[in-house]
């Protein structure tokens, strides 16, 4: 393999990691509050509010229903507005966040649903405010489950980032499509796929180890 190709792959890995990590962080910054909002405004939640619950639910479901490749193209004007371009890694982060945030919100919601309702009741009985219940009980108690969700989210976002290669996104996905698919370089295709698999495995392994370490229920 030529020196240029190795350089290319190295850049690809860097770009993929960059897109995936930044998108995951921003998606969580939006997804956690959104997930908490959906959870607490539920009929059985601590801030039961049908209207807010319905609206957030609809937004999440609509965005989640659009296939990622379509969403990617559909929001190109918005992407240009935010980062000033529609190609490259930075431009991929925008649709990645838009697609991942609602997904993360659902993951967060399902993690929160696992928190024992008795513990929430006990917190209420001790005179906790709603904000205290969220920050001191719900999120800390759901932490292990949230981290499991995190490893799922990061793998999904990585997969999405590879798809963005079709429309000018960067990273390993772009290399696989431009060299492996359009130029029939099967060896490049195989190597990029191997890298993608490795990265997913790495994230998952690290995630599970961290969860096992911090979850105090398992001992």
């Amino acid at each position: 393999m030529s020196k240029g190709m190795i350089e290319l792959l190295k850049n690809g890995v860097d770009e993929t990691l960059y897109m995936t990590l930044i998108s995951t962080i921003i998606a969580y910054a939006i997804g956690i509050p959104l997930g908490v909002l959906v959870y607490v405004t539920d009929r059985k939640g601590i801030c039961n509010n049908r209207i807010i619950n319905f609206i957030t639910g609809v937004i999440i479901n609509v965005v989640r229903s659009v296939p990622f490749l379509i969403l990617l193209v559909a929001i190109l004007p918005f992407t240009r507005l935010v980062v000033g371009t529609t190609i490259g890694s930075d431009a991929t982060i925008v649709p990645l966040v838009v697609a991942a945030a609602p997904f993360v919100a659902r993951l967060v919601e399902s993690s929160l649903k696992e928190v024992d309702s008795g513990v929430i009741e006990a917190a209420k009985a001790m005179g906790s405010s709603k904000l205290q219940i969220i920050t001191k009980v719900l999120l800390p108690e759901a932490k292990p489950s949230l981290l499991v969700g995190g490893t799922i989210a990061i793998s999904t976002i990585l997969g999405y980032s590879a798809m963005a290669g079709f429309v000018g996104g960067g990273g390993l996905g772009a290399i696989a499509i431009n060299y492996g698919y359009y130029r029939y370089q099967n060896n490049v295709m195989l190597i990029t796929v191997a890298f993608l698999v490795l990265i997913v495995q790495l994230f998952q392994e690290v995630g599970i180890r961290v969860v096992n370490k911090i979850d105090k229920r398992l001992r």
Partner: peptide
């Protein structure tokens, strides 16, 4: 104060 059948302690603390 209140105590419960299922104790309801914070499992991560």
């Amino acid at each position: 104060g209140m105590i419960f059948q299922q104790f309801n302690l914070l499992s991560q603390r």
